[in-house]
Design a protein around this nucleic acid. Sequence first.
DNA 1: TATTGTTATACTCTATAACTATA
DNA 2: TATAGTTATAGAGTATAACAATA
Lengths: 153, 153
Amino acid sequence: MDDRNGPGSAFLLTQLGTYAAGRFAERIADLELTPPQTGLLRAIAAGPGQSQQALATLLGTPPSRLVALVDGLDERGLVERRRNPDDRRLHALHVTPAGQELLGRIAQVGKAHDDDITGALDPAERSALRGLLGKLAVAHGLTPGVHPGYRHL
Amino acid sequence: MDDRNGPGSAFLLTQLGTYAAGRFAERIADLELTPPQTGLLRAIAAGPGQSQQALATLLGTPPSRLVALVDGLDERGLVERRRNPDDRRLHALHVTPAGQELLGRIAQVGKAHDDDITGALDPAERSALRGLLGKLAVAHGLTPGVHPGYRHL
DNA sequence: TATTGTTATACTCTATAACTATA
DNA sequence: TATAGTTATAGAGTATAACAATA
């Protein structure tokens, strides 16, 4: 009956999601990282030794884009490409100690970011929100831990 | 104590917000509209007669970008520029009947979109989510009704 | 011939800055 | 001179396609 009850949850999710993504990008810019770089670093840490093709598939990005992202992390000594002697076409990707150290700082930033975004809610509300969002993420088949911004936004 | 309890709400908001934005973009593509065009059309309808400068400020986009967006809607007869006789520099923007008709279809799409995104939740959960998201949107000062994707994403 | 990684190229979106017309 | 709108230009980010090395 009432058609004027304001925006729906989907609209609010888009607004808040965009806002949260922007705020996170600002925070990790202090570490001289972009969101795609951060997602890639985390993906390499989550599954060490994967090929660039495998990572491209996981993240949903073309291999050519991955090359540039890996280049940036490689040049800064955060990850390294190890050639596989059995198949010299493959580059197994690994996080270096410096990369691990940076991942620790990323985790700290993520925690502060989360507190910032949900700061207006009390603990019970935060828990409820977390549960509801998790339910939706599962329902829509979103890959756990994979930042968006890869699949044809 | 437990550091391995999965992603936080901020991360989930980013994932779901990006997903929802993408799905909405797909839906309104059927109406041959982009998200920025849709947001602009809604903004013009919400405050008829505004100047392009005023709309640019409201949406947080440079005036030059607004020109192209208005051009697209104007050429399709969805909005019209009316010159102000008192100050011929100004273009007062109005939605045409065709634009109003399209806004009706956009509202239908938005409703279907919302049902899609929150479909995994029962009515009580949907209501709870809506309340929590609204609280966060207010806390972060997000402009009601204004799609993101305008302010320096 | 097929596959991994790479390079070259082009396209989309957006912002910045220069320009015009009105005031 | 200041402002609304417009046009011109350039930059960032990404995708597509061609290429080289290895299998």
